[in-house]
Every structure is written in structure tokens, then in C-alpha cells.
Write a protein that binds this DNA or RNA. Structure first.
Ligand code: MN
Ligand code: MN
Ligand code: ZN
Ligand code: ZN
Lengths: 150, 150
DNA sequence: TGCCAGATAGGAGTAGATCCTATATACTGG
DNA sequence: CCAGTATATAGGATCTACTCCTATCTGGCA
């Protein structure tokens, strides 16, 4: 809807924590900023590495626990993957994902970039569908260029 | 297309291994049969547990290595998930998945059960799309029934 | 400013996956 | 049918991500 300030009417990190009755600690603030800023979809361990630049002895446990809290209250998400690490996504606007079969990166795909099907009118009584996403699979630009060259 | 014999013109396990120049060992045969039969989407460890009923001291390494081989040559697949284990799928016909947000099970969804979008005509130059799948999310029948009761 | 529920650091404990190597065995071709 | 060899397996060691535990610390409150 609106474009200004901090994007889609998103609250400031500090405000966001307060509104969920989470104590505002410097560690949490930094974790929140990091997960909101990233373009990629890092694991807890990867994010721990990054947050450590600012808090050299923050524990992995704190990062993992915090991310899980965030995911449970809807500040961030888990993202689907094929390997054995759990990945997080700080982009909370509805979007789809592209998985590169070469480099394994996961790239965001805005809904406008796709002919999105209306809503899966499911002819199946085994479950109630709440939401759906499209999972694209292919080769990313970087990998394509790398494979073109000799 | 045709319905007879063993489904969609699928080769027998033994034949399948031979055609990929894989030696036919009893362990491989059993792993192959198990992954092809399952309705769920087991991890290497889970499948190891099952195969062990027939080969009590088959090693996890053998099962994991074999599944990875199978996936690489297209006998089985990796399946997307949200946790930190790698899951496999023996159903090679094109299909989609439903993820239950309660019990975390992954259920198969046949393409005919969905209004499938034609083909994602992607307005994005960052990658080349080879395939796509739909990832449904919601509550499965079992979980719904369980939550209805007092 | 002092209290205390809640948060953190750091270390121990788990689980799944992967690596290593001696032994076993499926295929080959004689 | 058999022996030689390339390949596969078992079992143990190692690695990695995550989770649990607990003493200590601190943000928010009165
Ligand atoms: Mn994303
Ligand atoms: Mn499936
Ligand atoms: Zn790539
Ligand atoms: Zn369920």
C-alpha cells in the first residue's frame, strides 16, 4: 500500500519487541535488525556468525532461541529447504521462492513477478488449506554465467 | 497414461539399478523398495530404522549414501522441509505437497487435485525456471478432528 | 534505586550426517 | 564356473547444527 518511511507500515525494531512484551535487550535488537535486513535466508548458525561481529561472545543458543521466538510470534519465518539446516526469512510480505539447483541459494520472488494462480481450489478433503506458496526451481543468473564461460 | 502392471511404466527395482550401472546388492534393493513404497517422506535415519528390520546391522552410512546416490540419478528426490533433517520422496510422478502446521507431516497432492497455474511466466531475469511446485500449508484432517473434540 | 521475572553465556548433551578404512562381495571375462 | 578387481558395506570416528541446563546478569517496574 504505502511506500514511505520503513516500508509497508512496518514497526521499528524496538517498537516491535515492545508490542510483543519482549524485553528490549541489545542482543535481541541486533538479531532482529540482522534478520530483517538480510536478502538471503540464513540459518541460526550463520546469523550467529554475523551477530558476533557486534557481540563477540553472544551464544549460539541465544540466537537460535530468539529466532524461534520471533518465528512463533510472527516477526520472522521458517523457510523451506532441502538440506539439513533450518533457515529463517525476515521478509514478512507474502512472496515466493526460487531455489537454485546449482548453488543452493534461495532467492525471493515477489508475487507480482508471477502469474499467481487465484487460490488453490482444492478438490481434496484430506486437509484445510490456509495458505500456499510457489516453489520455483532452476538455475540462477550467476550460475548460468559461470557455466557459459569455458 | 497406462495403468497396468507396476504403474507408469516404472522399471522393476532390480532393472532400475542395473540400468544405472549400480551393483545389485540386497541392501540397495531393500532401500529402493522401501523408499518407493512409503507414503510419507522419511529422513535417512528414519528409513535406516525401517530397513534395519530386514538387515539388522546395515549402517546408517549405507542408507544415507544410497539415498543420495538415488537422488542424484533421479530414482528418488529430496523434499522441501522446515526442520533440520533432510527428507526423501520416492514418488517420482510430478506432484505437490501439503504441509500440516500442527503435526508437521508432509502429504502428497496430485496435480489433478489443484487448479494448477499454466506455467509460471516469470517476469524476472534473475534466473531460468526449470520446474515449479506448489507448497500448500494448513491443517490436516487428523489434526482438525483432534482439535474439535474437547 | 532495589527487586525479580525473564534473558544470557557457556558448557554439556543430542541427533543426524559424513568421513575413514578394513573387510566383503557383485560383476567381469577368462 | 571361477578368480581378480572395482565397488559396496559395516562400524567407528568425527563434524555440525541444534538443544538443554544452570549460574549469573539485567531490563522494566514500583
Ligand atoms: Mn524469502
Ligand atoms: Mn511427495
Ligand atoms: Zn545458483
Ligand atoms: Zn496434522
Amino acid at each position: 500500500m504505502e511506500q514511505g518511511s520503513k516500508g509497508q507500515g512496518k514497526k521499528e525494531p524496538l517498537e516491535l519487541l515492545r508490542s510483543h512484551n519482549l524485553r528490549v535487550t541489545p542482543q535481541r535488537l541486533e538479531i532482529l535488525k540482522q534478520i530483517q535486513r538480510t536478502e538471503d535466508h540464513p540459518s541460526a548458525t550463520e546469523l550467529h556468525r554475523r551477530v558476533r561481529r557486534k557481540f563477540p561472545n553472544i551464544s549460539l543458543d541465544t540466537v537460535a532461541r530468539t529466532l524461534e521466538q520471533f518465528a512463533k510470534i510472527g516477526i520472522c519465518r521458517w523457510v523451506e529447504g532441502y538440506d539439513d539446516v533450518r533457515r529463517y526469512d525476515g521478509m514478512m510480505e507474502r512472496h515466493h521462492h526460487f531455489h537454485c539447483i546449482r548453488c543452493k541459494r534461495i532467492l525471493d520472488v515477489r508475487p507480482e513477478a508471477l502469474e499467481e494462480p487465484p487460490l488453490p481450489s482444492l478438490r481434496d478433503e484430506r486437509f484445510k488449506v490456509i495458505d500456499f506458496r510457489i516453489l520455483l526451481e532452476g538455475i540462477c543468473k550467476k550460475c548460468m554465467e559461470r557455466e557459459q564461460d569455458p
